[in-house]
């Protein structure tokens, strides 16, 4: 499984570039709307966590589906179907998508914090939410990407399909992020987020064979 991920890293240049470019463009747009176009600071703190996650979500939607779509488009999917067990394939893709998402977060978040002058009261919680939330994004997106890779109109369909699935994740992540910036401990929402991550992973592992193989 790790082998699969490593091999994909070969072509990371294209994937990461697109992803990073998209993320930064969105980031700049968002910052403009908050800064020069003037949003009141007091409103800011409530809204800022949401915007961060929106940037992450849209970047993921722009960059992640490639992992499966490309296999279908370059027709390497046939060779994969003949060689790999579904679980190995899914785990490999998931790992790869995870690294993409985490890399994205590492790149984007510091800039976001800088440009919005957002102060984080509990940095550990903040990092934890980013990690757990990022994981959920990657896991959910991986399975949905596998689904849409075999359908038409892949780009728009991915957003349409993934949003309802990721909605609970987003809400949880935003709430916890907000808590992290404000300094409250987050409470019971954290285990639920982790539970979501676990559930999505298990569901992905169980449903992937049905999606991948005829």
């Amino acid at each position: 499984m790790f082998v699969k991920e490593w091999r994909c890293e070969y072509r990371t240049r294209y994937a990461l570039n697109t992803l990073a470019l998209f993320a930064f463009t969105t980031l700049v747009v968002v910052s403009f709307s908050l800064g020069p176009l003037g949003v009141d600071r007091s409103h800011g703190t409530a809204v800022l966590p949401v915007l961060l996650w929106i940037i992450l979500l849209f970047s993921v939607a722009a960059g992640l589906p490639r992992t499966f779509v490309q296999e279908e488009e370059t027709q390497t999917a046939m060779a994969l179907r003949l060689s790999a067990t579904p679980s190995a394939l899914f785990c490999g893709k998931l790992l790869y998508n995870l690294t993409l998402v985490f890399a994205l977060e590492v790149l984007v978040t510091p800039f976001y914090l800088m440009m919005t002058s957002l102060e984080v009261a509990s940095p550990w919680l903040f990092a934890a939410v980013l990690a757990a939330g990022g994981y959920g994004l990657a896991a959910g997106s991986t399975l949905v990407a596998a689904i849409i890779a075999q359908a038409r109109s892949k780009g728009t369909l991915f957003s349409v399909l993934s949003f309802p699935i990721l909605l609970p994740l987003l809400v949880l992540a935003v709430e916890l992020t907000r808590g992290a910036t404000a300094g409250d401990p987050g409470g019971v929402a954290v285990p639920v987020l982790l539970l979501y991550d676990a559930t999505i992973t298990v569901a992905g592992l169980m449903l992937f064979p049905a999606v991948w193989n005829p």
């Binding site: 399975l143 309802p164 609970p168 005829p214």
Partner: peptide
């Protein structure tokens, strides 16, 4: 196949929605 998988994915996610 794809629809069934998606429906079940949705089912799995719904309890979280109800909770939050």
């Amino acid at each position: 196949r794809l629809a069934a998988a998606y429906a079940l994915l949705g089912l799995v996610v719904t309890p979280f929605l109800f909770w939050i």
